[in-house]
């Protein structure tokens, strides 16, 4: 765990030293501000539901951008050989990268806390629902980060990793969006498997164990796939 934490801190340091991190963070906060402000000023709704509803689509663009170079660049630059010959397990490498991106998004979410605090000044808010929405958003981010990291482990090029990550996440996104158009039997399965349907349930302020488990299971599956891909490279 300490090796994973060291990798995570190194990634944060790189993010602070390079413009990409700032560009992505600024763009995310601007986009977040736009969607939050749209509901507040255009429709006069002092709530965050509209923002959280658009968040999965917003993250679709930003999470792959934050994850794309995590493993692809390591392999491309040859530094993966350096990293993998240090006394660290492949699991720690995957976990360290996951914590690094997850932590970056968490920082951005902390910055968006200014929205609920500003709503408090305008009127009553449903604090429980907003807290549940933030928890849902964090779990969805966890799922998105693991999918994007897996994409980054598949290639040596960061740009290709972005496209792959975006494509995979779009698949996850559409899995939730197309449910209504499918036969009932499929609908039941997709509702069960789609991270988005569980995310939307949590937005209502209801946190079910199956929602938590499903979103964490997506994370675990894709982190395992990422580990598997890195191990597979050694045997190829």
């Amino acid at each position: 765990m300490s090796a994973a934490w060291t990798i995570c801190r190194k990634e944060w340091r790189v993010m602070l030293d390079t413009p990409l991190g700032y560009v992505v963070a600024t763009a995310f906060l601007l986009a977040s501000g736009f969607f939050f402000g749209k509901n507040l000023f255009l429709f006069g709704e002092a709530e965050m539901r509209g923002y959280f509803e658009v968040l999965p689509m917003l993250l679709l663009f930003f999470v792959p951008a934050m994850s794309m170079r995590m493993l692809a660049d390591e392999v491309h630059d040859g530094s993966y050989e350096l990293l993998a010959t240090l006394p660290v397990s492949t699991w720690s490498i995957v976990l360290g990268k996951y914590l690094a991106v997850g932590g970056q998004v968490l920082m951005l979410f902390l910055a968006t806390l200014v929205y609920p605090f500003s709503l408090v000044m305008l009127g009553d808010i449903d604090a429980g629902q907003i807290a549940a929405s933030y928890l849902a958003a964090l779990l969805l981010v966890s799922c998105y980060v693991s999918v994007s990291l897996y994409a980054s482990s598949l290639t040596r090029r960061a740009v290709i990793a972005y496209v792959l990550g975006f494509g995979l996440l779009l698949g996850v996104f559409l899995l939730g969006e197309t449910i209504a158009t499918l036969p009932p039997l499929w609908q039941d399965w997709l509702v069960l498997l789609s991270p988005l349907s569980h995310y939307e349930r949590m937005l209502r302020g209801v946190i079910g164990l199956e929602d938590l488990m499903l979103l964490l299971a997506w994370t675990a599956v894709f982190l395992t796939l990422c580990w598997f891909q890195l191990e597979r490279r050694r045997w190829q």
Binding site: S2, A3, T6, I7, K10, R13, V14, D17, T18, D77, G78, S79, E81, L82, L83, L86, P87, V88
Partner: peptide, 21 residues
């Protein structure tokens, strides 16, 4: 000799040292 080119020398060495605990 691959290394983390975005880091300064000192931070890179610190990272490697910490990985060796």
């Amino acid at each position: 000799a691959p290394s983390y080119v975005d880091l300064d020398v000192s931070t890179h060495l610190q990272f490697v040292g910490r990985m060796h605990a």
